[in-house]
Design a binder for these strands. Structure first.
Lengths: 353, 353
DNA sequence: GGTCGTTCGTGGAACGTTTCAAATATGACA
DNA sequence: TGTCATATTTGAAACGTTCCACGAACGACC
């Protein structure tokens, strides 16, 4: 079934020209005389010739792809980033190799090696931990690296991020402004930079409002998913109402959805009895039964911008200057948050049904 | 900054051996004498040598990657499939190039060309439409193709799918068994094979129960997302209660979540006033405020199996036989569906809070 | 009919591997 | 000491492109 792949040489033979000419038809058709070009193109069609990308890459020294290494492809945040990257890359005729590090150092290392062997134009990565050392070496060996959703530790690298501290501050400031006194922060592990920053922002908001930062009830979670959110909510719900927080700020939307679900299951009304603000503003946040208030990140833009920086570095003729881009997040208020209500008979706003 | 990439030749020079020996150290270390091997490995380390995958591929005639073309990376169904594919591929040391056709014929064609030029080991694809012709030609030229979530039209190809007709039948049979008399089907466009099959299954369930198939109230949607689900629900909600369906079967979970959200917003209780069953059983389905009943597909298994078939065809020494694998879906009942209740005061089961 | 420009086309080197037949070293044995 | 088998290493030919220095053909012009 598998016929021998046809090469440029056979095309040349059929068209009665040299291989160089076929190559020219392929890459610079304008410098080839009309009739010759037609003859070659006919031969290409007749033989079903397909360029061999490996050979081109070998000759060129670099492949026509870029690598994207994310922490979790199943997280809508990253699929949106990937989307932005892909759009930008395809405009330059590049393909994207998507790698899922799954938050594991080992897989990350494995993929970085693979990408370097593939001689990709460059790598976009959200590192598992601050992997500065390893990435810097990659860069020295000639593979540009752009950090996505992290700040570059030095001026020697490009990075694209969203100001997570500001995001945390926006969310908690709003809750304070709404009149909440007892606020919880749900998130973890604290070793994740995004989590730590969002927490820091929350603390900053408290300080600015003249509150003690010990007023923030921190509920640490082992992961950033729905199940962890549910467990955190169960913990909060057990507190007696006078001491229970009236608002929860979650480190991401998956957690927030877990919290929402558990509160709902326990007949604690959102937002009447407890307000919830999430982070990321994934599409499902707006579709939750109580649409989630959330801190929106420009996800696709993040991807696009990262890809642009990478391409500028990889293709730009030495004119590239490293930049650390920081976007601002935006607070989106929906129905899951509002001013606290005094306990009593059901409020007039529908809780969830 | 970018130092000249070091090749096998320089390693050989430093270690004082021939390039062939370096290649042997890399690929068949056991046939190289111990001391020589050590010397070469030291040289590799000292120079920071990285294999050039393009050159290997050129020599081998095939790359060490497989292509995966999906309709929508943002749909959790496909990210789970991708996950399965990736797990299986990485066990064989292959990388996955993930391509998003975005339901557009043009993008699909573009990516197929790109993958063929890359000489991938094979392609896994959920085609935009029945693209039998084009895919068959690909296969003839030597690139194995496995259809994912579609049935192969002929014996000449492998395919992996889930029995969507059965899935539809399971869902609607359950609703009938629960005592529902008026049932709606929400889904579209009907040109999508999955939608048509699930609808057919619903009709079959009605027939088996001795009902007229005209009893199914079909609400056509323009797409399979949350927004379309909301619009469909609004349409259903406008019907006067005596004629309004007491149960809705949706062609996928995104639609179902939209329906749930809109019903909830209109204070129509789920499942007391209306039952909902979705399709796919994505992770978010269980996390909805009213956990969704849904028809589960073995998503990761789908991906794994597809990859296995592909690898068997690509790597297996001519012993491959094409297979059309069909999995069975499984109905998962959660709180969004149940027996219909007579209208009246709030039932004892919590609706949504 | 030479000379000079253009316009096209040619032929072969190079990219970095792998593979394989052939060459060489090693050691056992008579 | 020579012979033979075995273990190791070598050297060169591919793989399919692109690139580039040349050459051929063709007019045009003096």
């Amino acid at each position: 079934m598998a016929e021998a792949a046809v090469s440029i040489r056979e095309v040349a033979a059929l068209a009665g020209v040299s291989v160089g000419t076929v190559s020219n038809v392929l890459n610079r058709p304008d410098i080839v005389a009309g009739p010759t070009r037609d003859r070659v193109q006919a031969a290409i069609k007749q033989l079903g010739f397909i360029r061999n990308e490996s050979a081109r890459q070998l000759r060129a020294g670099r492949s026509r792809t870029i690598g994207l290494v994310v922490l979790d492809v199943a997280n809508p945040f990253f699929t949106d980033v990937a989307r932005g990257v892909e759009d930008e890359a395809s405009e330059s005729g590049l393909a994207v190799i998507l790698c899922n590090s799954d938050d594991q150092q080992g897989k990350e290392t494995h993929y970085l090696e693979l990408l370097e062997e593939h001689r990709v134009q460059g790598i976009l990565i959200t590192p598992v931990t601050a992997a500065g050392e390893r990435l810097a070496r990659l860069q020295q060996r000639g593979t540009p690296v752009v950090l996505v959703d992290s700040r570059a530790p030095s001026q020697g690298q490009c990075s694209v991020a969203v100001d997570d501290v500001l995001g945390g501050e926006l969310a908690v400031s709003r809750l304070l402004g709404d009149g909440h006194e007892r606020i919880a922060f749900v998130g973890g592990p604290a070793s994740i930079r995004q989590v730590a920053d969002r927490h820091e922002g929350a603390v900053r908001a408290l300080r600015q409002a003249g509150r003690s930062e010990t007023g923030l009830h921190v509920v640490a979670t082992p992961a950033l998913n729905v199940a962890a959110g549910k467990r955190a909510a169960a913990e909060i719900a057990q507190l007696p109402p006078p001491r229970r927080p009236t608002a929860v700020f979650c480190a991401n939307d998956l957690l927030a959805m877990g919290v929402l679900q558990e509160m709902t299951a326990r007949r604690i009304r959102v937002p009447e009895s407890i307000s919830i603000i999430g982070y990321d503003d994934i599409e499902f946040a707006a579709a939750a039964a109580v649409p989630l208030s959330s801190v929106r990140q420009p996800r696709q833009l993040l991807g696009r911008t990262a890809a642009q920086l990478l391409l500028d570095e990889a293709l730009g003729a030495g004119t590239h200057r490293h930049r650390q881009v920081m976007f601002e997040p935006e607070l989106v208020i929906r129905q899951s948050s509002g001013p606290p209500r005094k306990p009593g008979p059901a409020a007039e706003t529908p809780a969830v049904g």
